[in-house]
Nucleic acid binder design. Structure first.
Lengths: 330, 330
DNA sequence: ATACAAATTGCAATCGATTGCAAAAAGAAG
DNA sequence: CTTCTTTTTGCAATCGATTGCAATTTGTAT
């Protein structure tokens, strides 16, 4: 059912139908009525692609997420989608997977669909392949990165102070009498190196020597991964009194490891996660975590993107401050 | 940058450029080369909307999820998206929110975008508003519902045997010596009433009387909700020996409640969830759960939709069988 | 050199909308 | 009943692609 079909049946020109649909003035009341009856009768909805073609505007926004199964990313996407849908945009959310060339490829797909704005979820998009693909395919579309940043004129970033946030975690552990600390990170995520920096800075400020900065890298952020590495840590260095993990999900594996080894938490071992995710609330004991302000971050991302969509300034960098949520594991 | 810009600079007609782009035969090698150089130079990507218009095919698929924050729905969306993207479709995933009129509205949006197929995630789409909206807006687009079914000629469903699955849980609890059982459900989700039926059937088969079928309804599927209702159950009926919850997430709240009350699990109280989600693996003790075969269900949904997209049969109903995963809470 | 077939290329219509401008119809004034 | 406005309406171009068919160029055989 096209605008022409309606026009023919109504005995008017397509342009008249179009004017009725878009509530343009200058149409006789009876004509308007007659057309509206037919529109309703056939449940006519204009084709967004055809309209976009002539209007030169798709009102399409792309949301790219590496892995849509990661809870805090979908939480964030949820907030952003709500906000933009309210404003008449259609959000197409896509999971890219971890491979760099795939992330670049999805940016190409977004160009193909002529999106007017993009959200990149998470620091895993902070890579050269992505930067090049943006320069190549979307050099002037407003892009906002959540928890990350790329130095391009059309890319803005909303980030949280991960380094000083982790420093605060170190301070907390020292305040609880734990000074021999380990730090566990997933080396695939660039933001984790910022967190690691905070760990090192904090430790040194408390007088720790270089060789006492126990850092453990892993390649997979999962419960099992957290379990395994925690087992390894506790075996290699039984003197460790506290562990900071870059994600709650992994920390939760650590909680289980301590449980299986019969190590009381937090008495003999304190554990800290980052994210303030539901996982930390579920486990026993409840996890002390660093709230990365995801809700606020997402809201800001949505509003910065909205400004961009309306043609306002770009290339902003917005910083928010994290907050420790102390629960039962410290 | 359009196909005409390329054509002008190459000194050929737009049709020639189009033929180069689509690898059509009958173009001289040198012409092809010359055009390809320009395509690369300007990073030209054809506009999907314009192409879709003339080709009468958008290669767009819509995935509707009530709440993209629910882990098992995004897990499933992830699987489906991967499969369809591989086949050249572009999946637009959208979170509708719980309101019926919004779900119907999103179906309208999908019509506007002229999607060629739709996935509806979860039984919460089993409503009249959705059925009417499909009849109105997408009466001949192949639609597949995951874990639900609507009786329309273009809608297929892949479902799991929730009723007999829950019956198996009842059997397990009886086998573990627990016979005074409670059932907790979220009354907003139609599939939960199928589960409740299984609970009742199972209990009766074991000789329970009608008044011993303790059913508790809640309006919110959350950890806190599970905690609260479990507290209530254990206070009202301290004789309860086992509780079956319709989602792991809620069951996990129950684990915490038992812990806070000092009730040993599974010795004095056995707990069973449904979903086989990560939440159940995280908590201590690990949760016994009913695997709803989500992975397999999603794969089937993707392949049924693919058949539909290729114009094959529709209106299938596929049933899979759930399986108990016994862990530490029974 | 000529005729004819084959390989290239371009013209113009099409997809489903929107919109400026001209034409037609309706209404107002003389 | 004109004439001049003011409303309504329709024509035709446009957006960025694709494709059947005709036109042109090239190659081959005579």
């Amino acid at each position: 059912m096209t605008i022409y079909d309606i026009a023919r049946e109504a005995g008017v020109a397509a342009s008249t139908v179009s004017r009725v649909i878009n509530n343009r003035p200058g149409i006789k009341k009876e004509t308007r009525q007659k057309v509206q009856v037919l529109l309703k009768k056939y449940n006519y909805i204009p084709d967004a692609a055809a309209r976009g073609l002539v209007m030169q505007s798709t009102r399409l926004v792309g949301i790219l997420i590496v892995d849509i199964r990661v809870a805090h990313h979908t939480e964030s996407a949820f907030v952003i989608e709500q906000e933009l849908t309210k404003r008449g945009y259609c959000c197409i959310t896509m999971g890219t997977g971890p491979r760099d060339e795939d992330k670049a490829e999805y940016i190409r797909i977004l160009e193909q669909r002529r999106v007017e704005g993009v959200i990149l979820m998470g620091s895993m998009f902070e890579t050269d392949a992505v930067r090049e693909s943006i320069k190549k395919h979307l050099p002037r579309v407003p892009i906002v990165m959540v928890n990350g940043y790329l130095d391009l004129p059309n890319v803005s970033g909303v980030i949280v102070d991960e380094d000083t946030g982790v420093e605060k975690c170190v301070d907390l552990l020292y305040a609880r009498g734990k000074s021999r600390l380990a730090f566990v990170l997933d080396s695939r995520s660039p933001s984790n190196f910022r967190k690691q920096q905070g760990f090192c800075d904090g430790m040194k400020r408390h007088g720790a020597r270089e060789e006492e900065l126990w850092k453990y890298e892993m390649k997979e952020s999962s419960v099992q991964g957290g379990y395994d590495i925690t087992m390894q840590i506790l075996k290699e260095r039984p003197e460790i009194q506290g562990i900071i993990y870059t994600i709650d999900l992994v920390a939760v594996g650590g909680v289980r490891a301590a449980y299986d080894l019969g190590i009381p938490v937090p008495e003999r071992l304190a554990l800290v996660g980052i994210d303030n995710s539901i996982y930390g609330e579920i486990c026993i004991p409840k996890l002390t975590t660093l709230d990365n302000r995801l809700q606020a971050l997402s809201e800001s991302a949505a509003s910065i993107l909205r400004e961009g969509l309306e043609g306002k300034v770009q290339n902003k960098k917005l910083m928010m401050f994290s907050e420790i949520i102390e629960r039962e594991s410290t």
